[in-house]
């Protein structure tokens, strides 16, 4: 039986795409927009990426 795989973003860009897709239905809430930014920041920190400049594409 083929298993469904967990979504496992490896890079900041992949993670951003995942967050935007996952939260697309609830992003109209201001709190969720802020939450999404914090999630991206936490992910970057965990990647050991101290520079925020890498991400803005």
């Amino acid at each position: 039986m083929q298993k469904r795989q967990a979504i496992a973003p490896k890079t900041a860009e992949e993670f951003d795409k995942h967050v935007e897709k996952y939260l697309s239905m609830v992003l109209h809430h201001e709190e969720v927009q802020q939450m999404a930014e914090i999630a991206k920041k936490v992910f970057r920190k965990r990647l050991g990426d101290s520079s925020d400049t890498l991400r803005n594409n």
């Binding site: 469904r4 967050v19 996952y22 609830v26 709190e31 969720v32 936490v42």
Partner: peptide, 22 residues
Amino acid sequence: DLLCHTMAVGFSASSYATDFSC
């Protein structure tokens, strides 16, 4: 649940976003 899916930790068969409750 919303935060765990957002952070892409694990998987629970569906990745449909639960609504945000103010």
